[in-house]
Design a protein around this nucleic acid. Structure first.
Lengths: 200, 200
DNA sequence: TTGACAAGTGACCTTTCGTTCACTATAATG
DNA sequence: CATTATAGTGAACGAAAGGTCACTTGTCAA
């Protein structure tokens, strides 16, 4: 039962930190949201900062597990249309999975305060997606689906606009549908521009 | 002298809010940074929240003045090389002007809490740049510098990656030089892809 | 010169924060 | 069965927060 509560504290912390930030969150509310009294959480973490650090540890580990290793690379699409489908599938997950959304929000809010949050933010928002699609595009060029080009530059040009719209969804969730449509339109535009003729 | 202090309070607030966020800033420190004692600022603003609202008012007005009207549109570049030069000039200002940097940071930190900050954030981070370059690209297509294409889509594809690197500069200022170089490389890549042949 | 007012001070108030601690209930262990 | 560790309670604490107020000072208009 101990481990359960310790986990639940981190879940609640992610939720509250992602909404109000670290400084804007108090231990009383956090405990209350778990049906605990304030002092109860101090049985599991010695301080508010310890909760924050444990949460960051978890986020860092999660990222390394799920996005850091080459194992979890999606298979290279075998058509241009499949690239759009793959993209939409990934974006759908990332925008609708509450835990991922909250993780991005927390990193957004704490990136200027905590060096580890800053580092992870850059991975989440920039280099992670770019690296991933660099590999994908390399594969697609080998298959003759994309024109020969600097795959890293293409990956950057492809993922940065998508990332911008994901941020928009985090900020204004009511615009999610619109943003998803724009991502799909952008993906098709990208394919038209960079796709090898005959594969459209 | 009154107006001077009232202004200086907003300047100090921008600085502190951009570093520690609204919740992470206390009025005592804010006053001290102006050589005032806490109660002094309450002669000018009735509460911490009033300071925040006045700062937001100012940021919104500033944005409307400087980026909202069509007056301040840069002249349409008359060559592809000039597009890159214009871009680098604009990025240089936006990344090195401390006040603009702090404004972006504040909007980043408060976008999930304050609806007006949210709205302004979307303008700063997404639609503002896109709208601006939609006009620029329209002009460049009329001049025969860019291939006929959806100018809004092109503007989005151009500005979003640049915006992502500006965010990187805000987050990790030590990477500014690297990011600037990447922006320039991206701009030249973009020109190669979308520029009308014979104008390279 | 005087009166009024804006700007700033320092003491104080209330609330809320993070944290501690003596204590209880529970459940596993010897 | 006795014991001991664990999870949780509730009262309390000191520090720090936002905010108020009576008071002083300096400036300027009448």
């Amino acid at each position: 039962m101990a481990k359960d509560t310790k986990e639940r504290i981190l879940e609640a912390a992610l939720e509250m930190f992602s909404q109000n930030g670290y400084a804007g969150t108090n231990v009383r509310e956090l405990s209350a949201s778990l049906g605990l009294v304030k002092s109860g959480v101090y049985k599991h973490y010695e301080s508010k900062e310890a909760i924050w650090n444990a949460l960051l540890d978890q986020m860092i580990a999660y990222y390394a597990d799920h996005f850091g290793s080459a194992d979890h690379l999606p298979t290279v699409p075998d058509s241009l249309e499949a690239l759009t489908r793959l993209t939409m599938r990934m974006v759908n997950v990332t925008v609708h999975d509450e835990k991922i959304v909250m993780t991005r929000k927390v990193l957004t809010l704490e990136q200027f305060r905590d060096p580890r949050a800053r580092e992870l933010a850059t991975k989440h928002f920039l280099t992670g997606l770019t690296d991933m699609f660099t590999r994908i595009f390399t594969g697609m060029m080998e298959k003759g689906l994309l024109r020969e080009n600097d795959p890293a530059m293409l990956a950057f040009a492809y993922t940065a606009p998508i990332s911008a719209l994901i941020h928009l969804c985090d900020r204004e969730p009511e615009k999610t549908d619109e943003a998803m449509a724009q991502i799909e339109a952008f993906s098709r535009h990208f394919i038209k521009v960079y796709g090898e003729d005959g594969h459209e």
